[in-house]
């Protein structure tokens, strides 16, 4: 597979860098301070290709904490909030769209 660093970065709007946490696989977002958070609003957002490239390079180098980083689209709300930019990202953030089997 092509490394995320070798891929052409095409951005049409605001993006974040997301990955899965190594220890438990949880969905995480790259923060501006270089840490990772499970909370999307804490993610560093950019609409700039050069900045996105920097984010992804730093994320790839952080292989010990996060696996499979990539650039994902987000939507900015009028009040400055951040929301997933597509259905896949919505499901990654919010979990399956169906009821999980319940124990009885």
């Amino acid at each position: 597979m092509t490394s995320p660093l070798d891929q052409k970065i095409k951005i049409t709007g605001p993006v974040v860098v997301t990955a899965n946490r190594v220890g438990d696989g949880a969905v995480v977002y790259r923060r501006a301070d270089g840490g990772w958070s499970t909370r999307l609003p804490e993610a560093a957002v950019t609409s700039n290709v050069a900045t996105a490239r920097e984010f992804i390079a730093a994320a790839v180098a952080d292989d010990l904490r996060a696996v499979g980083p990539y650039i994902a689209p987000v939507k900015l709300t009028a009040d400055g909030g951040v929301q997933p930019g597509n259905l896949r990202e919505l499901i990654r953030l919010g979990g399956p769209t169906i009821d999980l089997p319940v124990t009885f």
Binding site: N20, V22, G25, D63, V67, R92, P96
Partner: peptide
């Protein structure tokens, strides 16, 4: 987990044991 193996090194090992990475978790 200790960082001795990178994901590139570890991935084939986990896959040999049926461990995939999905959207939400392994």
């Amino acid at each position: 987990l200790s960082g001795e193996l990178t994901e590139d090194e570890f991935k084939p090992l986990r896959l040999m044991n049926g461990v995939y990475l999905q959207l939400h978790a392994y």
